[in-house]
Simulated scan of single mutants.
Amino acid sequence: MNTLIKEYIRTKAADLTELRRQFHSEPELSWEEYKTTAFICDYLSQLGIPYRKTDPTGVIAEIKGGRSGKTVALRADIDALPVEELNKDLIYASKEHGKMHACGHDAHTAMLLIAAEALNGLKDELSGTIRLIFQPAEEAARGAKMMVEEGAMEGIDHVFGIHIWSQMPTHKVACTPGPQFASADIFNVKFTGQGGHGAIPQDCIDAAVIASSFVMNLQSVVSRTIDPQQGAVVTVGKMEAGTRFNVIAENAKIEGTVRCFDPSVRDHVEKQIDHYANQVASIYGGIAQVEYIRGTQAVINDTESAALVQKVAAECFGEHVLFDEKPTMGGEDFSFYLDHAPGSFALVGSGNSEKDTEWAHHHGKFNIDEDALVTGAELYAQFAWAFLQENK
């Protein structure tokens, strides 16, 4: 632990809150984070930290230490969601109709800026380089890929990220080895039958019946074809069929998502969805067209990296902050950075019933306990410091 980092960040608590509230009140959706990007650039310029913008949004910056060494990357996502803010009484509520930081990315951005400020003040003592990745479009599950293409991971020896987590008590830190977030895929299925009059079903092939049968049978992919000890979720979230109450549907469309941790399970589910769709359609004399879109990969924390996070958190905040949070079926495109370097992704608790901050992520009433900001900012900075110290 670096005591100067701890002391500096604690003196910046008010600034942290102000930064987070500014980002929260001015949310921007994926690939539209122009004002946020400009603000980050201005802030880094004032600190004298060199940076470059990425296209169309996002920022990559570097703090070069006074001594040579490894390079560690710290990542924060910057985009908001198309969610209407329901916390209308907040003085920092979203000013943008239908847009809201409902997942905590405003907090991540503020925490990394203050962490950068603290680290930059100690750069002459650093043995190595710290790369700062302010990533757009995490909610679109494509921002991390773009940042990798823009060179964000070139020369990186290790990568670390944080997510504020409303399901955990404020200040708690979780970073367990192995799976943390699931892969998140999308599937679209179109069934084609033969429409006709609702009073003459014998002359038709009802796409609504095909689609309904598929939805019911699909649940057995997980319950009957996957090892019960392997986690997997298959969810149909949208279903459209027909045009009118007395017309038998000629077409039906289904959209859903698949979540799991194991790549072999992912491959299996993809094949089963195609198999089930075509077999069910064939039973009724219809046709199925299946599109399977691979989104984020599973976030698998490196064992040594996760151990270092736990060590840093315990030294900085005490053993009592360590929290054993179970892996979530939520998706995170941080996984694409882990294709290029070992690393880990930590959760920092921000749930506080007294402050009404235990709402689920992506909900219109989502908010964070701002006391967690100091914990997150220090964890960013102390982890980078510790990694470079241990890898001189």
Rank of each mutant, 00 (worst) to 15 (best):
L218A: 12
A208S: 15
V222L: 04
P201Y: 07
A208M: 13
F214M: 01
Q202P: 03
I164N: 08
G161Q: 12
T235L: 11
G195C: 01
S212F: 07
V222M: 05
K172N: 14
D203M: 02
R224A: 06
S212V: 04
D185W: 05
Q202T: 08
G237Y: 09
V209D: 05
A207K: 06
I186F: 15
P169Y: 02
G196L: 03
V221I: 15
P228N: 12
A207F: 03
A207R: 00
G196H: 10
Q219P: 02
G193T: 07
T225G: 04
H197T: 00
F214D: 00
I164Y: 10
F181T: 08
Q219C: 01
T192G: 13
A182V: 12
I164F: 15
D203L: 11
A184Y: 03
H158D: 13
S223P: 02
S223Q: 03
V236G: 03
V159I: 15
G231Y: 07
F187V: 13
G195D: 04
H171G: 12
Q229Y: 15
V234Q: 00
H163Y: 07
V234C: 02
T176W: 14
H158E: 15
F214V: 06
Q180P: 04
P177W: 08
Q202L: 00
T225H: 11
S220Q: 04
I186G: 08
V221D: 00
V159Y: 03
I205H: 05
I200A: 07
Q230L: 14
M216N: 11
A182R: 10
P179M: 09
M216D: 13
V222Y: 05
Q180A: 15
R224E: 11
H163C: 01
D185G: 10
F187N: 12
T176Q: 12
G193D: 13
I164R: 09
V159M: 02
N188M: 13
S213N: 14
V215G: 06
Q167P: 14
P169V: 06
Q219T: 06
F181W: 10
Q202E: 14
D203I: 08
V236F: 02
T176R: 09
V233C: 02
D185A: 06
A182G: 07
A182E: 09
K172S: 15
V215Q: 05
S183Q: 06
A174W: 11
N188G: 13
A207M: 05
I226Y: 11
S183D: 04
A182T: 03
F181L: 06
F191P: 14
A208R: 08
G195H: 05
C204H: 00
Q219M: 02
T170E: 04
G196T: 06
V234L: 05
A211F: 06
F160Q: 02
V236Y: 05
K190C: 13
S220G: 11
S212Y: 01
N217G: 09
S213D: 14
Q219Y: 03
V173T: 04
N217C: 08
G198M: 08
A208N: 14
R224L: 14
G193F: 06
S212W: 10
Q194C: 05
S166V: 00
P179T: 10
W165C: 09
T170R: 02
T176Y: 06
F160E: 01
V221N: 05
P169K: 03
V173Y: 06
I226H: 07
N188Q: 14
H171I: 11
V215N: 04
V159C: 10
Q229S: 14
G193H: 11
G196Y: 10
